[in-house]
Simulated scan of single mutants.
Amino acid sequence: MQLAQAYQHCLGIARNHYENFPTASKLLRADLRPAVAAIYAFARHADDLADEGDATGETRIKQLDAWETLLERCESDETIDHPVFMALGDAVRKHQLPIEELHNLLIAFRMDVTIHAYSSFDELRFYCKHSANPVGRLMLALHGVDSSEAVRCSDSICTALQLINFWQDLSVDLPRGRCYLPQTWLQESGLNSQDMLGGNISLEKLQPVLKHALQTTSDLLEDGVALLPMLPFRLRLQIAATIHGGRRMLGKIEKVTQPMEERASLSSGEWKTLLLPVLKDTLFPAFAIKRKPA
């Protein structure tokens, strides 16, 4: 297989999946899209190994281990005969990507197999450190942004986005046996993860927990706004849109009356209303830092 074919294979995977991942975004520089697609194809397949089908947990872990072996080879072995790793290895070398962040993603996928509830927020943040933050760090590396403050702000945004996804998907995750609300938060309202998984809860008790979860997530998202002035224009536009979308989603989740049964989402019309504030924050990022969210 030729390298160009390998990249086309990855781009095809990216275009055929809808995800909160900047694979096919027209905001990305055209020369960076193949590398992002290679990262996505790597993560997509690993995610499927962890979640899809009816394989046992032991089998899933072995498959993820085999996937990591290919990752270890691809950095230095240009003869590797696998389209995802042929493209990914080229992207890592060409853009000097931190390959440890790809290994971090695999840590999170293994956690998906073995852990289905979290005792504390620190444990949940450890998961986000490996499941979400690597994506932001890889995007920064692709754009040549490497300051420690930029990485810190990116981590805050990525962790917030992962948490938003958790609070948005309570009605999806709980029936699948996964509770991401930390046990310590639940205990403050007299609840526990088994209550959540069994559906044996009162909304009156759950509401303070969700309020705390949404506020904690909002604080993280706002902490990341300082990243905007550090980014090149195209990436800044994309991250500004991500931040505004995250804010709007937090508001939508807060208004859901049956969080165990309903899933909040943003319509195309709601996204369109964000165009002007996103453009303002992209053109005047310093003001975006000072301005309180609407």
Rank of each mutant, 00 (worst) to 15 (best):
Q168R: 14
F166T: 00
R29T: 00
D155S: 06
K94W: 06
S265Y: 06
G198N: 15
T217H: 04
G177E: 13
E188Y: 05
I157G: 00
T114V: 12
F109G: 02
M1V: 05
H212L: 14
P232C: 02
K26P: 08
L124W: 02
L142Q: 00
S265K: 09
Y7R: 10
E100V: 12
T59R: 13
L250G: 01
F121C: 04
L191I: 11
D169T: 05
Q8F: 05
D47G: 04
L142S: 00
K255E: 15
R73E: 10
K129E: 04
A66I: 01
L210C: 02
T257R: 14
L174V: 12
A286M: 10
V172D: 13
T159D: 10
L32G: 01
R33M: 03
V135R: 14
A226C: 12
L3Q: 04
T257N: 12
A14F: 05
Q194R: 14
D122K: 15
L70V: 01
N16L: 03
F126Y: 09
S156R: 05
L32T: 07
R44D: 00
A24T: 15
W185M: 14
L181K: 03
S156F: 05
S154M: 13
P34G: 00
G224F: 02
Y127H: 01
L231K: 11
E75Q: 13
D77H: 10
L106N: 12
L250M: 08
H9D: 10
R234I: 00
K62R: 15
D223N: 08
W185Q: 11
E19S: 15
A66E: 12
P83A: 09
I243S: 04
C179G: 05
D219H: 07
A150E: 03
G198I: 09
L250A: 02
K62M: 12
T242E: 07
V84T: 15
D54V: 09
T23K: 10
L214H: 01
I115A: 01
L163T: 02
P277Q: 10
L275P: 03
L97S: 03
T59P: 15
I115V: 14
T273V: 09
I201S: 02
K205G: 03
L210V: 14
G245H: 03
M230K: 14
T184H: 13
N192Y: 00
K129N: 08
T79E: 11
M230D: 00
M260G: 06
L49F: 08
C153Y: 13
D112P: 04
K272R: 11
L174R: 04
V113I: 13
D155N: 12
V172I: 15
M111I: 15
D155V: 08
R236E: 01
A43Y: 07
Q207S: 09
V84A: 00
D65R: 14
H9P: 08
A6R: 07
L174T: 12
P175Q: 10
H103V: 08
L221I: 06
T184E: 14
V151G: 00
T184N: 12
L97H: 08
A46Y: 04
Q215D: 14
A294G: 05
A117N: 11
